[in-house]
Each structure stands twice: as C-alpha cells, then as structure tokens.
Design a protein around this nucleic acid. Sequence first.
DNA 1: TTTTTAGTTCTGGAAATACCGAACCAAAAA
DNA 2: TTTTTGGTTCGGTATTTCCAGAACTAAAAA
Lengths: 163, 163
Amino acid sequence: MTNVQLTQEQRELIERMGVFYEQHGIPPMEGRIMSLLIVCDEPELTFDQIRELLGISKSTTSSALNMLLLTQRVIYKTKPGDRKRYFASNIVEWQESFTESFQKFFGVIKIMKEALAQRTSKTPEFNQQMAEFIEFIEYLSVEFPRLYLEWSNRNTQNNNKNN
Amino acid sequence: MTNVQLTQEQRELIERMGVFYEQHGIPPMEGRIMSLLIVCDEPELTFDQIRELLGISKSTTSSALNMLLLTQRVIYKTKPGDRKRYFASNIVEWQESFTESFQKFFGVIKIMKEALAQRTSKTPEFNQQMAEFIEFIEYLSVEFPRLYLEWSNRNTQNNNKNN
DNA sequence: TTTTTAGTTCTGGAAATACCGAACCAAAAA
DNA sequence: TTTTTGGTTCGGTATTTCCAGAACTAAAAA
C-alpha cells in the first residue's frame, strides 16, 4: 500500500533539516517528521507511511505526531470513508505561528521590566542600558506585527493579481 | 569578602528568569547566572561571588561561565593589580547578538530553498505555499536589519540630545 | 622558597530525554 | 461474532545532560 519512496537525496535532506530543527529546540524525531512532510513528494502522509518511511516504531510515531499537532507544526486531514488521518506540514499557517512565537518571546519584556523595577538606583548606567534594551524589544514587538501586516497586504494583492 | 547578598525577592526573580531562559534553549545554570548578573545590585561579580550566591560548585561555575563567554552572553572586565575577573551581563551588545541570532535563524531560507528545488512539480499548490513561506522569511531577513538600523539611528540621536 | 589565589580538568552519579516493543483499545469491516 | 485497522499506553533501556567533588595548575603573593 505504501508506494511512496524516498530517494537517497531526500533522505539526506531530511537528516540535515532535522539537525537544523534540533538546533532550534525541536526533538530529533519531530524534526525528522516535519522535514519528511516538506521533502516528500506526497505532502500528505498517513501514520503508517511516516512510520515506514522513517523506519521508526508506532509509539515514537504516535507521541511525536501528537506533540507536533499540539504545537501546531503539523495538521491532519480526513477523507470520507477513510479512517486514516493524513498528516501534513502546517507551512500554510507558518507565518502566523511565526509571529506567535515571536510574540511569546516578547514576554521577555515583562520579566525584564520587573528586574529593572527592583534594581538599586546606585547603578544608573547599568539601569539605563537595561531600559534601552527593554525599549528595543518593545520597539520590535510593535514593529514586527506591522511588518507582518504589510507583507500580508502586499501578498494578497499579488495573489489577486495572479487570479 | 563577599558582602553581596540577595533578597528573597531577588532569588525568586532569578529562578523565574532562569526558567524563561531555559524555555528558550539555555541550560539551567547558565540561565541562572545570566539572571543573577541582571538582578543583583552589583552588576559585576567575580567567579567566587557567583559560585557562592548561587550555591554551586566551582566546576559548574567554570563551565557555565566559559560557555556564556563563548556565546557572548556574558563579558568580563579586569582591574589593575587584581587577578580576578569581573563578570557582567552583555546587555550592552544584546541588540547586536539579537539580530545576529535572527540572522542565524534565517539560515532556514537556504535549506528550504533546497527542499523546494528538489520537489516534484506535481504538487503546485504545496510548492507555491513553500515559495511564499520562503519569500516571507526573506522579507523578514531584509526588513529586520533595517528595523535595527532605524532604531539605532533614532537612539543615537536621542543620546546626543541627552548629552 | 612555600603558599595562596583563581580558576580548570577529570571522573562519576543522578535525572531527564528519546526511543523501542509489547500489550492494549475502540471503531469499522468481514 | 470475529478480525482488522489505526492508532494509544505502558514499561524498559540507551543516551545525553547537568551538576558535584576532588585533584590539578599557573601565576601571584608572602
């Protein structure tokens, strides 16, 4: 049933992308699955196809896929009269999940402000540098969503033009 | 000799900031040291002060500090006639190391282009979505440094005004 | 010269992580 | 009803990470 195959080139690319993901805090197998769903000719794969293509166990497949679904990096589709789930990369919504994770990162502002607030007033230069850092991040947290909006607008215009 | 002390509030803040750093891929003890250097009244601490304030071993202190120096999250200063090193948070250059790490992250573009290049032409929508994703990241990788420059300019102007 | 200082290096153990295989389960098919 | 399908859950093991303690070292001080 599984007639999807991987070339040697694809296998190597999956490993390299997996390492990239791993370096950014994603567990190895989750990274490989994400890579598989991007590299593989077929953009929708079933549980068992993923398991076989990567040569891993059902339990590993299950827990990795569930985590990827939870973190919204992977989605699945169903088909009428078919019990299987078809997993796919969530690149469609990556822009959003991107800005989301940035937003989450900007949480540093809150805790940094807290740290600054409790500091002694006897270190004015240091405190000033902290204040500037906070301002910079706040600046980014404002400008970044704006960038995203501008890109979105530009892009929907292009899409309309192309249709 | 070590008359630097931490309040209970500071201890708790260090732990919370440490967790924040940990969630962003920094090892626990490195995160605590970074937090300590931001929260502590004294912005410059010696090896032994760090060790004592956090209640950790010399080996842990040594390896964590060396890693923090390597990753440029911490710097140290020396004083004439004093063999000790005075470690400090590198918030001054955080803006740069910030944009740097973004730049590093934008390495995703290269591998994504590779993945797109090897894809079958039989999945045009998927390929189109990948192409859009790549465009988005490329857009960010251009706009981000621009944001940083604009902020720098604005800020040096303000600094000049304040002097 | 000996001692002190300011660390570094080298095991080693505890805990967390990443996987596997086997047993299990609920819904659909036979 | 039994069997198959599409997974999930439950131990268990191998690997990695994090940290401590003890031994070590080079430079400075005594």
